[in-house]
Design a protein around this nucleic acid. Structure first.
Lengths: 233, 233
DNA sequence: TAGCATTCTCGTACTTTGTACGATACCTTC
DNA sequence: GAAGGTATCGTACAAAGTACGAGAATGCTA
């Protein structure tokens, strides 16, 4: 009865849809999507499972919520800025965000109703492209290409058996063993001579592709009229 | 006792790991990953849930199995062939396969132990690149870039709310409504003037990016010695 | 051919999960 | 303080993965 006022101030905050989503993200970050259950979520909020259903219709709505929260973390490009730099900044940011929340990738496929952050994001990218003189058609190509690359890169990184150059050593043993059978000669060469060499970091691959794509896109743009300040003269 | 011989020949086939995996794929194709349960799988095989556990350790092993089965459907590039054509063929094939089995994309992120078809696939791609004169480092870049693009494109297609130019009309209504608020002006323009125009097919975006990437890669290759049949003269 | 061992099948039951239903506690407004 | 909405949650059920171990089928040896 009166024990409510004695609890920590943190969990005395009233429940809200926002707190539910925030907590859900924290759980997914810590224990993956599998660790996110209504019960674990309720516990982390200091409440009981059924209380959450006052703020969300069902678990799917929570998933939609955390996906949109992820989009919210991605830096938006600024329409009117130098398009290459803007797109690179947002791509790099998106990739970092997805690395921080790898569970989001799997979710994106299943959530078909975009949230407001998602829409805002798309709008900003399209705005940047249009301001830089991209035709609608070229903007469509560009958007599809860049997004596919960013998401695909995130997907690759998420499915790597290691997590940066350090823990690479941990899987090196089994890897070498697997290739010792003589099958997969090229994979073997690739692993031994390149990936397992000191200094290799898969994360570095990202920039190569991103630059290649951006440069390729630039070649598709009509000549900038002025040539000094990127946009229009 | 004697009712066994009366059943249809189809379900009289002895159970096997292969049949389990095949059936699991069929279920996932038909009803998505959510429809694939041990119970539904057992029923489709004319048996009972626990019988499956003689052939697979657990459900995860089934998921690993169907992911590798998907890789098995992708056309391998032929090392020694014209690299651009080979890579394009395998990328196109991969994308078609992933469109046929969209559930595979979500799985790829979670499965970290590659199956034999997966390894064979990687080996063939690397072999093709090496035979074409790609350095290990450039091969790594290329592999990461192409795979990211293919998987990312598949991910995009899978999360589209529509499924080809036909059913696009179905979502046009809600789309237009959503944009009528005045937010998202660029998205609005994009939807109205481009995506919702007759003839637009998102599937066409794929080739643009693929060609851009392949052309960009070609520029990174050292000059081909002969110059007749490899790259550009 | 008889007996035994191995392989395969599956009935039962426990655990974890999402969530429906309805009761309780709380907080306002008169 | 009574009334009525708002927020919380106790209980319970259905669906799913799978542990356990019993029974049936099959093959192998003598």
């Amino acid at each position: 009865m009166n024990e409510k006022s004695a609890a920590s101030p943190t969990e005395r905050l009233p429940l809200s849809r926002e707190r539910v989503v925030q907590s859900a993200m924290a759980i997914a970050d810590g224990g993956g999507l599998a660790g996110l259950t209504i019960r674990s979520l309720a516990k982390s909020l200091g409440t009981k499972p059924m209380s959450l259903y006052h703020y969300v219709r069902n678990k799917d709505e929570i998933l939609d919520g955390i996906v949109d929260a992820v989009f919210n973390e991605i830096e938006l490009p600024v329409p009117g800025g130098e398009w290459k730099a803007e797109l690179k900044r947002r791509a790099t940011s998106a990739r970092l965000v997805l690395r921080r929340h790898p569970w989001a990738i799997a979710l994106m496929e299943s959530r078909t109703v975009p949230g407001p952050a998602n829409l805002r994001h798309h709008d900003a990218v399209l705005g940047t492209l249009r301001a830089a003189g991209f035709s609608l058609s070229l903007a469509a190509h560009t958007y599809a290409l860049l997004d596919a690359y960013v998401y695909g890169s995130a997907l690759q990184e998420a499915s790597l058996p290691f997590d940066g150059p350090d823990s690479l050593a941990e899987v090196a043993g089994p890897m070498v063993e697997m290739f010792s059978t003589g099958d997969y000669p090229h994979l073997r060469e690739f692993a031994m001579q390149h990936v397992l060499q000191p200094g290799y970091d898969f994360g570095d691959e990202f920039d190569f592709g991103l630059d290649l794509i951006l440069d390729g896109l630039a070649a598709h743009l009509p000549e900038p009229v002025g040539g000094i300040d990127a946009g229009a003269a």
